[in-house]
Nucleic acid binder design. Structure first.
Lengths: 231, 231
DNA sequence: TAGGATCCAGCTTTGGATCCTT
DNA sequence: AAGGATCCAAAGCTGGATCCTA
C-alpha cells in the first residue's frame, strides 16, 4: 500500500508529461473517499448523483487548470483530462462530453481548427470504477487518436457541422455520427437565438455539445487494438 | 409491370445458376399475396404469425427441393436458399437459422466437413420487406463468403464446437460466437439424451441449432463492403 | 425430428433532459 | 455561459422459447 499524496489542497499544474504521468499513476486504485478527504469537499456523498463533481475532484488531484475557458486542462502539455465512470467489467456506460458547439459558427467551422480536434488530440482517461464496492480510480490511460481514428472523428464532425451549415439543423439529432454525436447541452428549456431561417424569423434552438458515444469509449478502453481502426 | 410467373404450382428445380438467377429476379418486388395465389395455400394470412410458411412459399416459387434431408436447397447448384424478413430500411431484425447440431457429434465435428460450411458456402438471400404496406419480396442477393468472412465463421464454429467437445456444453449459450451462435431449436421442453457426464449419468440437453446473428446479416445486406472483413 | 423460421420478455442501449460549480 | 458530467424513460436488441409442415 502506498502512502497518501502529500498535498492537502489543489495542486499546482504538473510541469511535464512525466510528472502528470506519475500523478495519474499515484491515483490508480485509490478510493474516491480518500481523494475527497485530501482534495476538498465537493459535497459529502462520493457515490452517484454527483454529476460533474467527481470530474472536478480529479482535476484538483492532478493539478488541472479547473474552470478555465479555453482548454485543454493542462495547457502547457496539450493534454485533456476526461473522468469516465465504468462498471465492474471496466466498461463505460455513458457518453462523454467533449465541448460546446455554437450553432451559429457552423458555416466557418473547420475540423483542423476545431475545439473538438484540439481536445481529443491527447486525452488522459481516468476511469472511475463503480462495481458495488467503494468507488475508486481505475487505471489511467493516455490516448492519442491513430490516423484512422482521427479520420472517422473528422468525418463525423464534417457531417454534423455540414448539416447545420446547409440549414438542416433540425435533421441533426443524437443518431447522426459514428463516434461523435451532437446532443442538447444544459437545461434544454433554455433556448438561444443564433440565426435566421428562410422567412427571416430568428432561429431558436437549445444549445448543444459534442459527445463521444459510449460504444466508442467502450471499445477504446476495453479493446484498443481491434474494432477501431477497422469499423 | 411484369406478367405473373407462368407456373401455377411448385416448379421443377432450376437447371442452372442463370436459370435460378432469372427466377429470383422475377420474384423481386412481388407481393407475397401474389406468390401465394400462384404457388399454393400455406394458410390464408400472408402477414406475420407465419413462422416458416413464408420460407416454404419461396421454396416452391423457386423450385427448391423442399423438405428434404441433406441440403442444400438446390443440390446440383450448391446453393442454399434463405428467406429473410427485413424492415422498411431493409434491415434484418431476426437471427437466421442455419442448421441443426447434434451435441453428441461435437468431438468429431470439423469445420471443413460441416453442414454449416456447406450451407453458407453459397447463399441466395431473398429479403421479405415488412414496411407497413403489403409484404413483398426485396432484391434477391447471392452471397459467397469472402476468405476473411469464412475465417470468422470458422473461428466461431471451432469455439462453439470445441466448448462442447471438452464437456463445457453448459457454458455455451447464445452469447458465444461473433457471427455464429448456438441456440435452442424446437420446443425447448423436449430434451434428448446424447452422452454421459463424469458421473456416468446421461447428459440431457435440449436440441440446438446454429444461427447467424441479426447484426451479421444486417451488415451483410446493408453494407457488404465495410465492417465485415474488418470487424 | 429436421427444416422452414418467428415470438417476446427482459435486458441493454441511448437520445434527450437535467444538475452543479466557476 | 462554459465546464464538469449523470439521469432516465423509451426504443432497440437478443437469448431462449415456440410454432408449423413434411
Amino acid at each position: 500500500v502506498r502512502s497518501a499524496p502529500e498535498v492537502a489542497a489543489a495542486r499546482p499544474p504538473p510541469q511535464s508529461l512525466s510528472e502528470l504521468r506519475a500523478r495519474a499513476a499515484d491515483l490508480s486504485s485509490r478510493p474516491l473517499r480518500e481523494l475527497q478527504e485530501l482534495f476538498g469537499s465537493l459535497g459529502q456523498d462520493p457515490m452517484r448523483h454527483r454529476k460533474g463533481k467527481t470530474g472536478q475532484l480529479i482535476e484538483r488531484a492532478l493539478g488541472a487548470t479547473a474552470g478555465w475557458r479555453s482548454r485543454p486542462d493542462f495547457p502547457s502539455l496539450g493534454v485533456e483530462l476526461k473522468t469516465i465512470p465504468v462498471d465492474a467489467q471496466g466498461r463505460p456506460r455513458e457518453s462523454t462530453f467533449v465541448t460546446h458547439f455554437a450553432l451559429a459558427d457552423a458555416e466557418q467551422a473547420i475540423w483542423h481548427d476545431s475545439a473538438v480536434r484540439a481536445k481529443l488530440a491527447h486525452v488522459l482517461w481516468i476511469p472511475i470504477v463503480y462495481d458495488g464496492s467503494e468507488p475508486h480510480v481505475g487505471r489511467p490511460w493516455f490516448w492519442i487518436p491513430t490516423p484512422q481514428q482521427a479520420a472517422v472523428l473528422e468525418a463525423d464532425f464534417d457531417e454534423l457541422v455540414g448539416l447545420i451549415a446547409i440549414g438542416k439543423a433540425e435533421c441533426v439529432d443524437a443518431r447522426v455520427g459514428r463516434w461523435l454525436q451532437l446532443r442538447p447541452k444544459a437545461a434544454s428549456s433554455r433556448v438561444r437565438t443564433w440565426g435566421y431561417d428562410a422567412d427571416g424569423a430568428p432561429t431558436r434552438l437549445p444549445p448543444r455539445g459534442f459527445y463521444l458515444r459510449a460504444r466508442f469509449t467502450r471499445a477504446l478502453l476495453q479493446d484498443p487494438t481491434t474494432l477501431l481502426d477497422a469499423g
